[in-house]
Amino acid sequence: MNIFRLAGDMTHLLSIIVLLLKIQATKSCAGVSLKTQELYAVVFVTRYLDLFYSFISLYNTVMKIIFLLTAFTIIWYMRKHKVVCQTYDKEQDTFRVLFLIVPCFVLALLVNHEMSVTEVLWTFSIYLEAVAILPQLVLLQRTKNVDNLTGNYIFMLGSYRALYLVNWVYRYFTELGYRQWIVWVSGTVQTCVYLDFFYYYVQAWRNNERMKLPG
């Protein structure tokens, strides 16, 4: 494992911790999209089915379990916690997730490495992860004001993807015969989804002001 991959994973983990801390400390999930969180849970469940039949490393197994547990913890807070769930902007978080899930599934059936249940579900999770942030970005656009923690959470999620891109370039040059087009193309799309957000995030940071999205 190279340094870019490790930095990417740690940034991903940190983004989730930031979100969980925000929810626990402020007892509020205002500005957080439950749809995006549920999509991430679907992504992790369909991708990490290999926990049952293959072992890559202790690091790999532990991280997968952490990602699964934290995804469901966040959903539990937003749906069931008696204080937190009242702060959820249900009326604003209306993205039609089936418009993401169905096309990703069809694409996974058409473009995959192997026509098996686990491989198609793994491919589906790669495609779905690329677009899973969209309900969150739409929610931000609607509510306009972005609180610092939610802004940092999304910024770290985007950074994690950017670090993975660097990791793939590194692996391409250091590992003989290493190529994975499905992951590369989806990962590039996924990183591009954040570009607009990055622009406004960096602008707010440079001007030392609270982040605002244009109407």
Partner: peptide, 10 residues
Amino acid sequence: EWHSAIHDEL
């Protein structure tokens, strides 16, 4: 080999 190399990422 190839299969495990593409599944070793999170």
